[in-house]
Design a protein around this nucleic acid. Structure first.
Lengths: 248, 248
DNA sequence: CGAGCTTTTGAGGTGCGTCAAACTATGTGG
DNA sequence: CCACATAGTTTGACGCACCTCAAAAGCTCG
């Protein structure tokens, strides 16, 4: 079970991210990498991987592409409640509940690993750090949901969009997807609107306002933030909820 | 370590709720009850039990009273991101992260049990169902956070307040705090405003609108919902995210 | 009975939504 | 390589849901 170089680079973000949450033994890493590579899947943009109401019987781990969790109301209103970036898993413990309370969809073409419940459970049963790392991930996810609540409930449009850009930046950084002061922005303004609880029209005007004030450059599917500190100030952004730094 | 009748009735909501998530052995229940009664605490209304930035080294389980999780912005804007009702615990796994990303405060006088981390960990290490029950609780908490995101992002004020009332009702029911079609509403309109992302003034007008349409009666700190189905329709409320029914 | 909350009412402003249409990519087939 | 279709972005006009400020009225409790 040796892995090729290209395989390694594919699963690298996952291992890098989990290791930042909890130090992982060489053994645990190898087993996880192997399990991921056995369950590789591809999906196009805009596909539902799993829908609200579906039973859950596997864990998905994103290797490339952007995904989102979303919920809809009967009349079609949609709210993206979180993003899922490369290196992140889709609820390692979701199968403890009966059915999904939300849907998960790709926003771009994506590659992910699907690990069956039994396989995953034996994996984490065999290594405490691995189990803790996945649990940490779930807890951070909840912390992000809380931050989104104050974002949607108490920040005005400009702060809200700025905050989302800051969060995206800080979540992409640990998996090596920030290039200087830029990252790709592969999703539509419609998606950004659904993530910030705004209409597309107003989201667009808010983006233009951020552009006009020089805080961001957004074009050719690339987001550039020249002065991240200034953007964070405008967003009232405080990154502690992301738990980016190793706890003692 | 036999327990008196009054002790039992105090911890009863907790055991009832956890048992609904996972069947618990008599042994596990007894150990948990004993641990809770050893760490009983009281707090007045409006006290912070733990604040954003604090390290976590114990688990709190609410026996009576209403609590909330909240976050604030530098300029004082506050968002209540979730309620904590009797029978619910405050993040059984929070100590895996370095510090709190939010604060927890009492909204009414409260009684809770505080169990030190080591004690709690040995408790759940000794019983798989107990560990799973607490994990389920954490997962449901996350699902509630997601529902709050769509509530804050995509529901209009009337739907939003109606939805909150429906959720409160459905969360109080399993711990026996619904009396016919009424429950106590011990918190201020200011708190309700901070939970729904509205101003107090507009929250008040929205409550009056709900009253005028006959959907609720709210007076003397008591909320009465004569036609819960109608209120749920008005709120676009679908309870599946609360995972109230035992999974197979 | 008065002090301090909490709820309610009024007036006026604005941030954001809706509707509609123009403009600009992006992609596909001929 | 162009013609066309489709998706995404941008602009304008207009309305309203919700906000802010201010003050009155009703509770609660020492």
């Amino acid at each position: 079970m040796t892995l090729s170089t290209s395989d390694r680079s594919l699963v690298e973000p996952v291992v890098r991210r989990l290791s930042a949450l909890r130090p992982l033994s060489t053994e645990a890493r190898a087993l996880l990498e192997y399990a991921m590579l056995e369950g590789l899947q591809r999906a196009g943009a805009g596909e539902d991987l799993i829908s609200e109401g579906d039973p859950v019987d596997s864990v998905r781990i994103v290797l490339s592409g952007w995904l989102c969790r979303y919920k809809t109301l009967e009349d079609g209103r949609r709210q993206i409640v979180n993003f899922i970036f490369p290196g992140e898993s889709c609820d390692a413990h979701a199968f403890l509940l009966s059915v999904m309370d939300h849907s998960i969809a790709t926003l771009t073409p994506a590659i992910y690993a699907e690990i069956k419940r039994a396989r995953f459970e034996s994996l984490v049963a065999g290594d405490r750090s691995l189990a803790d790392a996945f649990l940490c991930e779930t807890l951070i996810n909840t912390a992000i949901q809380r931050e989104w609540a104050i974002n949607l409930g108490r920040r005005i449009a400009l702060e809200r969009v700025a905050h989302l850009f800051c969060e995206i930046f800080e979540r992409l950084r640990p998996v090596g997807m920030i290039d200087g002061n830029s990252c790709i922005m592969p999703i539509t303004q419609m998606d950004l609107a659904d993530a910030t609880g705004l209409s597309v029209v107003h989201l667009n005007r808010t983006v233009q306002e951020l552009r006009a004030s020089g805080l961001i450059v957004l074009r050719d599917r690339t987001l550039t933030i020249n002065d991240l500190g200034a953007l964070k100030d405008a967003a009232l952004f405080s990154p502690s909820y992301l738990q980016l730094y190793r706890r003692s």
